[in-house]
Design a protein around this nucleic acid. Structure first.
Length: 257
DNA sequence: ATGGCCTGCAACGCAGGA
């Protein structure tokens, strides 16, 4: 079972990249973030032509998430319970034996801003939601754009980023608290080269210089993490013309969850 | 050089991203 995540930064602009990537990589599930389109504009025909179903939780201009899969997604949840929010950042679905929760965690803009407070409150509500989901589903995958670099290995220039949004202690503590529920960062289960990132700023040749962050994660519940065979970032789409600023990340589970 | 670029929307600049 190959489960992938990709922040595409506009599905309208990136539909060709997504279709090409699906055909080349053949994941069982692909979680997308930052669609920036409403559900009525979702390109179901294009996705179906690649051999995938899709469920979307879209929004005009901002945010928006979707799950593409071979098998039918059921038991959908499209918001954090007991958290009033107009922003479309959550989509959970059961696909075969797996519970998949696709997240677009708020960016937070700057430490101390209203958007930063919203991010921390959102992460609190996520914690409560995941605590309940973990008790309900043993094969749980929580993946997406977390907008938090968990530790300094995930930051190209840890000194320069100290105190910045995406690396601040409060954000890291909130993510650690979620891991402490019994979730594993599958990427770190494996030996990895240094300086592997999943996002690079469009500016200043950041990708060419590999000045990035690893903020796109595939978390797995502890029992499922033991069956994870690999977790890797695919930087190839970031080299294309007019790329997303994020690269896809894929984890493989198997053979018997 | 604490800015650089990209997207969407609506307008002929802005908000937002990370």
């Amino acid at each position: 079972m190959k489960i992938s995540t990709w922040n595409v930064n506009s599905l309208r602009v990136r539909i060709e990249h997504v279709c090409d990537w699906l055909q080349q990589n053949q994941p069982d599930v692909l979680a997308l973030q930052e669609l920036k389109i409403t559900n009525d504009l979702f390109p179901h025909e294009r996705i179906a032509a690649c051999g995938y179903r899709a469920v979307a939780n879209g929004q005009k201009t901002y945010n928006g998430v979707a799950i593409l899969s071979r098998e039918e997604p059921v038991d959908l949840v499209n918001e954090l319970p007991d958290f009033e929010d107009q922003q479309r950042r959550v989509l959970a679905a059961t696909i075969g034996d797996y519970r998949v929760i696709n997240l677009y965690v708020p960016n937070g803009q700057t430490v101390g801003s209203d958007k930063y407070d919203y991010k921390l409150n959102w992460l609190d509500a996520l914690h409560d939601f995941l605590r309940k989901q973990i008790s309900m589903f043993s094969n749980l995958v929580v993946l997406g754009d977390f907008n938090i670099a968990l530790d300094d290995r995930d930051v190209h220039d840890p000194e320069g980023w100290i105190g910045n949004v995406l690396v601040s202690d409060k954000e890291r503590d909130a993510l650690k608290k979620i891991l402490d529920l019994g979730m594993v960062d599958t990427f770190r289960q494996f030996e990895q080269a240094d300086n592997i990132f999943s996002w690079w700023d469009y500016r200043a040749g950041a990708f060419r210089r590999n000045r990035g962050l690893r903020i796109d994660l595939v978390l797995a519940s502890e029992s499922l993490a033991g069956k994870c065979l690999s977790c890797d970032v695919d930087i190839e789409p970031r080299t294309l013309e007019r790329p997303s600023d994020h690269a896809p990340v894929s984890a493989i589970f198997g053979p018997n969850p």
